[in-house]
């Protein structure tokens, strides 16, 4: 299996006012294509920082991070933006654009990538069917439940056929029944459509749903378990 993400002694220090905070002190990891990986750790363990780096939202201050073999430190801001088009983000707070409908939200990453209106509409409708929201495509986020919003977010994350899905506490803000549905959906996508998933959470039970779990503490990966 090809390695999609590889971190070597990855470090990130940022300034909190005048105090330097070492969020990552040397992380080594490899993510292979088709994997369902979870990163588990308490708040402050550095997992969100790691996620931002893998998502090309931020640059490391030390060590190397390769996404599909490319060292992200060498990329310009514009190239990082282009790289993000190949990554599907799913956030805890959904981060849908409130004034756009579900369909338009799913179309947005494809519009950014420059697809034509007809192409992206067709794909967006298919994706909403996949996540089970075909009948709610013209609803705005405010007219959808948390679970439904997160499914729109997953459909949006899949829009540009990403190399991997990056999920940050995907069930952290929805009820347990919907959470269960979401995780089943993610598992199905991983198994049926071979979507690589990297999920960050502090919920041990949720982390166990993944095939492999990395345990983080104080900026290090301290343990790795297979579930």
């Amino acid at each position: 299996m090809a390695v999609i993400v590889e971190a070597v002694e990855l470090k990130k220090t940022y300034m909190l006012g005048k105090v330097p905070v070492e969020a990552l002190r040397g992380v080594n990891l490899k993510v292979e294509e088709g994997e369902f990986l979870s990163i588990l750790g308490p708040s402050g363990s550095g997992k969100s920082t790691l996620l931002n780096l893998i998502g090309a939202l931020d640059k490391p201050t030390g060590g190397k991070l390769y996404i599909e073999g490319v060292d992200t430190a060498t990329l310009s801001d514009g190239q990082l933006a282009d790289l993000r088009r190949k990554i599907g983000f799913v956030f805890q707070f959904f981060n849908l654009i409130p004034r756009l409908t579900a369909l338009q939200n799913v179309e947005l990453p494809m519009a950014i990538a420059g697809l034509s209106g007809i192409e992206r509409r067709k794909r967006a409708e298919e994706l909403l069917e996949t996540v089970g929201l075909g009948d709610r495509k013209n609803h705005k986020p405010s007219e959808l439940s948390g679970g439904q919003q997160q499914r729109v977010a997953i459909a949006r994350a899949l829009a540009n056929n990403p190399r991997f899905l990056l999920m940050d506490e995907p069930t952290g803000n929805i009820d347990s029944k919907s959470a269960h549905e979401i995780i089943q959906l993610v598992k199905r996508l991983n198994i049926e459509q071979k979507v690589t998933v990297i999920m960050v959470t502090h919920d041990q039970k949720l982390a166990m749903e993944a095939v492999r779990t990395l345990h983080m503490l104080d900026g290090y990966i301290v343990k790795e378990t297979l579930n």
Binding site: L57, A81, N95, P109, I112
Partner: peptide
């Protein structure tokens, strides 16, 4: 600001 963050996370370039 948040919307801009989302757009950038979805791969929108600063110029856009």
């Amino acid at each position: 600001i948040r919307e801009i963050g989302i757009l950038k996370a979805l791969g929108m370039r600063s110029r856009t």
